[in-house]
Nucleic acid binder design. Sequence first.
DNA 1: TTGAAAGCGCTAACAA
DNA 2: TTGTTAGCGCTTTCAA
Lengths: 337, 337
Amino acid sequence: MKQVTIKDIARAAGVSYSTVSRSLSGSPEISEKTRKRVLELCREMNYTANTVARSMVMKSTKLLGLIVTDISNPFMSELAYYIDGQARARGYNIVLCNSLRSLEQERSLFELMISRKVDGVILLPAESESYNTLESLLPRMPTIFVGENLRDVPESFVTVDNYRGAYMGVEYLYRLGHRRILYFGKRKGSTTHQLRSEGYRAACEELGLEPRYMNNTFSSTSIRNGYQLAQQLFSQPLRETAVFAATDTNALGILQAAEEKGIRIPEDLSLLGFDNIRDSGLPRIGLTTVEQPKKLLASMAVDSLLDKIANDQAGYTHRILTPSLVERTTCRAVSRA
Amino acid sequence: MKQVTIKDIARAAGVSYSTVSRSLSGSPEISEKTRKRVLELCREMNYTANTVARSMVMKSTKLLGLIVTDISNPFMSELAYYIDGQARARGYNIVLCNSLRSLEQERSLFELMISRKVDGVILLPAESESYNTLESLLPRMPTIFVGENLRDVPESFVTVDNYRGAYMGVEYLYRLGHRRILYFGKRKGSTTHQLRSEGYRAACEELGLEPRYMNNTFSSTSIRNGYQLAQQLFSQPLRETAVFAATDTNALGILQAAEEKGIRIPEDLSLLGFDNIRDSGLPRIGLTTVEQPKKLLASMAVDSLLDKIANDQAGYTHRILTPSLVERTTCRAVSRA
DNA sequence: TTGAAAGCGCTAACAA
DNA sequence: TTGTTAGCGCTTTCAA
């Protein structure tokens, strides 16, 4: 696997190797004749440019770090799909890592990215503490946070408007006639969760409803712990006619527990999720939910980051996207008896 | 974002920069005193090694290319999760790309990987033709194919035993009392599909059943086209008591069409899938299916590839893993009336 | 135990 | 239009 280099080509063509470099880079200051001959030779000899060497002198790897907590999570893999698409369109490739929701791991990955000299990193943070853990490293690497609202922090992020999404969700259920709505799965340590629950509370106040919470006491959000929580919930008679789940994964857990309990959704209970992960659109599930615009999130993340890289001195930007409601089959109108 | 280099450290420490390099690399030929002082200084000055420069001289980037058709596909994202884990444990990072199931795109990504000087690539091929498209590039990059059985081709791959899995599936249904089993969703252009359908046919012959196929006429396999196919299937009375779907995604499409038609699964019809994607274990879905051991697939892919990289001259290896059956709720025993 | 120097493959400033 | 040369940050011989 001996590598053909620019020097081999130069020797074969009988020119200096800067001439080869110029031919390759499409520089104008070279005769068409030489260029053609050199390019021809490159093809014949199977020359492939060495990006590493180029990175070295250009001081740019054309690589973007993407740190997610878990790529097997459907929300993240969908986002990753779009991020890769957008990055490639802009001439970049992605170095993917999983932080496993560990702050320690996340920090060590971030250092790795610095060491690898990626041009920037897109971070789906392990938790709301992530900013603090990484703060000292941030000046050394252009970074954009995705999906987690950092509020008043001087670093770029792009996220959906979680407050507004939750507000919209409550309004929607209200319009269907629901007057008792449980908020399910609020978890500590996540600004996203915090904002969603604030949106829920505000809407309840506005509409004259009494808020009630069932909090997630686990350290992460998953189908499994949604299921466990829901079992608890269903162990007593339920006063509410609708449940608003903090995330779709939690809603999926509720679905399972309800099925086992013989509680029919939406006949006996309406269920609303948040995120619109792909699973939610699956047959037999058909979860009605507040959608995060994943494709937009992805392209904004990439574009913001590239902007930041280009304008070194720039500050930071906060972009908050508007969510929308996706109606499927888990919510129904109730008559006000 | 000025980078602190080995030279800055050397200057500060009043030593030559090879001494710094030696301290960092844990070389034995250096006094403990100097090493300590240098390391201390590195910490103070926030030194981070430049991996790109190191790659240049070491002729190894410690990067593995991972080319998938679509990372948002649950089977692939799960695989990617395990691949990243195993790669990292072995000191490597992953460069992720999506080929979008296009041979052209796939080839251009492969060339990109060569140019980026990744140490090897793990390929989830776009289709069975992939080997042919890439053949001329393969000698230039250690590669392992994952998930697609290349049969008699002189290149490494790791895959599940698709023939055997299908055979097992038929046996399972037979044991439940089914005598009429439809094979659903066989698609042209995929060796995987070919082998599965051969396994199905062999089992039918062995057990004295009459094979019947409903082929997938689309160019890919998805929930959507499984759904469309199933609509066709259900437009006429069905003779079979069980359907064996070529993939879980197809099975999910069937589930949807059945629901809309009022066909109950498993009461009216048993349904068996293949792959065990995560969606299949979701509440209300509970698809019984033939499982591909994804974690094992992943670690074998990484290990085989690293072996290949280490022993440059080596030939190729074919590893075929045994699938297993995951019983959930979509198949039921039928009494033989 | 340490330093000097070459070189990895490339780009770009400067000279011719 | 082309060639010469320095240098990107590092590792590693070879010499001291």
